[in-house]
């Protein structure tokens, strides 16, 4: 039975893990490789690293970090932030990442998803989608969601559910779906949104945004039909212990790797 995945997310700046509130007042949160290794031992199923600075000058810093992560950890990991071309993706994958994640660039240049999946296979291509509620997109199926870019700063006028379908058609292998309304609230994932995207696509959906306690993961796997649940601060600040979370999910009959 395929297990539901628990994925800690690490924000990276200049090779270090950072934490901040809405991209403000970034605070150093330790060496990224050490943090990754700790999550690995704690029972994480996969890791996501997002380079939040993602400038051209940082390219080499990022690939050398990816190299050090690949040397150290024995579970799969995804790297995102600033990937604008097949060459950028190649650099990250060649350094040992299992998947790359693209977000804003995919909306501006949808063909990039196609070229990435052609070159590396769809299993390597995660498309991150950030959405915010917008009644203008409400339909019979439910509330409307609008796609935002650039870390949530730029609205696009694009319907999130339609974009998710398009991303699948273009060849993405997975979707990392974040509800900006829920992100940082610790009040639970966007269950309706996750369910709609997950049940209308045939590729796996990683739910993100809103996790605050172990029950939220149970909900997102059962009512939300998510394939994986992603969170950052609750794992980072030890508010939720990964093994405790997995044992709880197992006790509820949800398949997890323990």
């Amino acid at each position: 039975m395929l297990a539901k995945r628990i994925i800690p997310c690490l924000d990276i700046k200049d090779g270090r893990t950072v934490k901040g509130i809405n991209f403000l007042s970034l605070r150093d949160a330790g060496d990224a490789v050490e943090n990754a290794a700790r999550y690995c031992e704690a029972g994480a199923d996969e890791l996501v690293f997002l380079d939040i600075t993602a400038t051209v000058e940082n390219r080499d810093t990022l690939s050398s970090l990816v190299r050090r992560i690949a040397d150290r950890i024995n579970i799969p990991f995804t790297v995102g932030g600033g990937i604008k071309s097949v060459e950028d993706a190649y650099r990250i994958l060649d350094a040992g990442a299992d998947k790359i994640s693209i977000n804003s660039r995919a909306v501006r240049e949808p063909e990039l998803i196609k070229s990435l999946s052609y070159h590396f296979g769809s299993q390597c291509v995660v498309c991150a989608i950030d959405v915010r509620k917008n009644p203008a997109f409400d339909s019979e199926e439910g509330e409307g969601w609008e796609v935002y870019l650039d870390g949530g700063r730029t609205p696009t006028g694009i319907d999130g559910i339609k974009w998710a379908k398009r991303v699948e058609e273009l060849g993405a292998g997975e979707i990392l779906l974040t509800s900006m309304n829920h992100d940082g609230t610790k009040s639970g994932f966007a269950l309706d949104l996750t369910k709609r995207v997950s049940t209308s696509l045939s590729i796996p959906v990683i739910a993100s945004g809103g996790a605050g306690k172990i029950e939220h993961f149970e909900e997102v796997f059962t009512s939300g039909y998510a394939d994986a649940g992603l969170a950052a601060s609750i794992f980072h600040y030890h508010e939720v212990d990964i093994m405790k979370l997995k044992r709880y999910l197992a006790s509820k009959g949800i398949p997890v790797r323990i």
């Binding site: 039975m1 395929l2 297990a3 995945r5 199923d45 996969e46 769809s122 299993q123 292998g173 997975e174 045939s202 590729i203 796996p204 394939d227 994986a228 790797r257």
Partner: peptide, 15 residues
């Protein structure tokens, strides 16, 4: 097969 209702690719941890 795409008609069995499960997601493809098969990604993740399985026993």
């Amino acid at each position: 097969p795409s008609d069995l209702g499960f997601k493809i690719p098969h990604v993740g941890w399985n026993s």
